[in-house]
Design a protein around this nucleic acid. Structure first.
Lengths: 99, 99
DNA sequence: GCCATCGGTAAGCTAATACTTACGGTAAGT
DNA sequence: ACTTACCGTAAGTATTAGCTTACCGATGGC
């Protein structure tokens, strides 16, 4: 589930960083106060969640956002949201009936 | 941040349960395989994240979804999504240029 | 007033997870 | 071929987070 991967502030920061464009692991590591292996581990979680994808580029490994994971997350969220909105609406109607 | 609260499967299940309507703590606890205090603790996290709100009802404490948290979460997500989409688009354009 | 129900919180345990250092393997440059 | 740069993974540690039991206060019914 994508939300498990998003439950960590560092991973969200990495994703935010990738909004500026693809970046290799080393560059990301330099931008963050934690070690390169730590970044690698976060990237693996994000990759498993399909939130990022990677490609080899010479000796570097470039990571970028993966639309797929965000799509399915959006679907999940929209669906939840639709049901919730309906529930709120019904509640409001009920309350106005009680008046 | 709401995403920290959503990073736990049990809390997501509690929220999904609350889609069916408001419920007191005890009822929620009976619907889940964990103890009542555990539910209470999850509810506190959800409340801090403004994803649920609670009201006293006699000796019971009834919890329900809080639109506020979902709104701000949606804003955050939409904003991220907009930037990401733009990034993808620019990348596609760049690639077609390179052809 | 007394007892039962309900729920929040504290304390403590355990398991998960985020981090570090150390190592190894691959690609590029000289 | 040798060296350098880059990165993933394994192993170990420490912090965090979720859970349980135990306790306490508050409300409501008798």
């Amino acid at each position: 589930m994508q939300l498990d991967a998003l439950g960590d502030a560092t991973r969200r920061a990495i994703l935010a960083r990738l909004l500026d464009g693809p970046a290799p692991v080393g560059k990301l590591a330099r931008d963050f106060p934690i070690s390169r292996p730590a970044i690698s581990q976060h990237l693996r979680v994000l990759k498993d969640a399909k939130l990022v994808l990677d490609r080899a580029e010479g000796t570097r490994r470039v990571y970028q956002l993966n639309p797929q994971g965000f799509d399915s997350l959006r679907d999940y969220f929209d669906q939840f949201w639709a049901v919730a909105l309906k529930a709120f609406q019904e509640k409001v109607e009920e309350e106005s009936k009680e008046q």
